[in-house]
Amino acid sequence: MAQHQVNYLKDGGLPVALTTIDKVVNWGRSNSIWALTYGLACCGIEMMASGASRYDFDRFGTIFRASPRQAELMIVAGTLTKKHAEFIRRLYDQMTEPKWVISMGSCANTGGMFNTYATVQGVDRVIPVDLYLPGCAPRPETLQYAVMMLQQKIRKEPASRAQKPKRLM
């Protein structure tokens, strides 16, 4: 058995840390982002791949939840069609504050290659978006980077309840 002897006076001080509520709350929030399984099209497959064995997403505390009530991050992975648009808005409204949205892939960003009658030209016409991921389809590494960027963004935000919900308009 290894003996762990920590000299608190020498190695990094006493196990007491002083911080602000903002930081503690944001530390918790940013390290346990639960994402809604919202695979719409091809990007959804890459989203699954990021969650699977090779690109283990659980390392980031990102766990996919099927219910919007338990999720705080919506990864819009794939083409949003006009028929589906009302559902994405409803699911977004069902998520609890604070909530964030990553628009994954060109289709979700701008409509991408599907410049047709049936696709919404960017999910930001329907819900407010925090991060746009380019690529068709973005690799799992890209999604991981996006989640890391989102963590940084969350850590920067004030965590108080007075923060205003994001508005599309």
């Binding site: 719409l40 083409t79 069609t81 599907f114 047709t116 009658y117 049936a118």
Partner: peptide
């Protein structure tokens, strides 16, 4: 169905 209809035939 039709929630992923992207109009490929039209494209």
């Amino acid at each position: 169905i039709g929630y992923l209809h992207r109009g490929m035939e039209k494209m």
